[in-house]
Design a protein around this nucleic acid. Structure first.
Ligand SMILES: [Mn+2]
Ligand SMILES: [Mn+2]
Ligand SMILES: [Zn+2]
Ligand SMILES: [Zn+2]
Lengths: 136, 136
DNA sequence: ATAATCTTTGCAATCGAGTTGCACTAAAAG
DNA sequence: CTTTTAGTGCAACTCGATTGCAAAGATTAT
């Protein structure tokens, strides 16, 4: 597992106080976080600074965003070596009971046979249901 | 292709002026529509009436919603016989060039092998890229 | 080291999609 | 016809996201 400093260095994003704390926070949790989640967790960091940090991280492929239908965009740290290309596609799981959203890096995504002449660039794949913890 | 009256009858939703015009509009277009799209197209129908109509349609499985990442929820008429169950799952395609979003009813969705003890209920699958018209 | 320049941050204001309260109208039931 | 229930239109409001701007911090040039 890379540290936040290593990731910022690799992705050539300057290390600042806000960036370090936001990235560290995202790395510390397995669950994808919304802007509000982060704002609540980092009580002394301004919302707009976190917002701009997330934009910077996304542009530089440090994190990716997930639209899970909850009304708030969630963010998760990219896997090592991720370039946010079609090859980095993976499902996300949204638990309808505990509201946890996370990347299913281990579930293989089958090749999607698009209609003739369509070109795949990205995808937002959110599978919804009950997580193992809630399905009891 | 069913008419709006037939659909409302089958789904046991009362036929009203707004419902008829909204459903007819959705049926007339192959592209999924946002609330604003519909509001713009139906100039004399109030936004909140359209909004509540869409909610009613969704609850009654007449339409389903799609979160395509554009910031506005899109709506598309369900296929005949759809119950919005996992079996009715299908991909959606969002063209990053022309902003068109639509259901890929003909592309098979493979069985998703979730981790142990997870339960699939729903999914929002949006594939993004260039549609045939824009990929030239 | 100091000044000039560029970047990041915090705060407040704004935007816009979505949602709701409420009064009015239309439809259904009695 | 009268009463009750459902649908509609309008205005107001919510809340996540975004932006303008000035202060603070970091980088580069003199
Ligand atoms: Mn992910
Ligand atoms: Mn669809
Ligand atoms: Zn759960
Ligand atoms: Zn297109």
């Amino acid at each position: 597992m890379q540290t936040e400093e290593e990731i910022l260095k690799i992705k050539k994003v300057k290390n600042t106080a806000v960036r370090t704390v936001v990235l560290r926070h995202l790395l510390s949790l397995e669950k994808a976080q919304s802007l509000k989640d982060i704002e609540n967790a980092l009580a002394y960091t301004d919302r707009s600074s976190i917002f701009r940090t997330l934009k910077t991280f996304e542009e530089n492929k440090i994190i990716h965003s997930i639209e899970d239908g909850s009304g708030m965009t969630k963010y998760a740290v990219c896997a090592e070596g991720c370039n946010c290309d079609p090859k980095d596609l993976h499902y996300h799981f949204y638990c309808t009971n505990c509201d946890k959203t996370f990347c299913l890096f281990d579930v293989p995504i089958p090749k999607i046979q698009l209609p003739e002449n369509f070109k795949l660039q990205q995808a937002n794949m959110v599978v919804k249901g009950l997580c193992d913890n809630c399905n009891k």
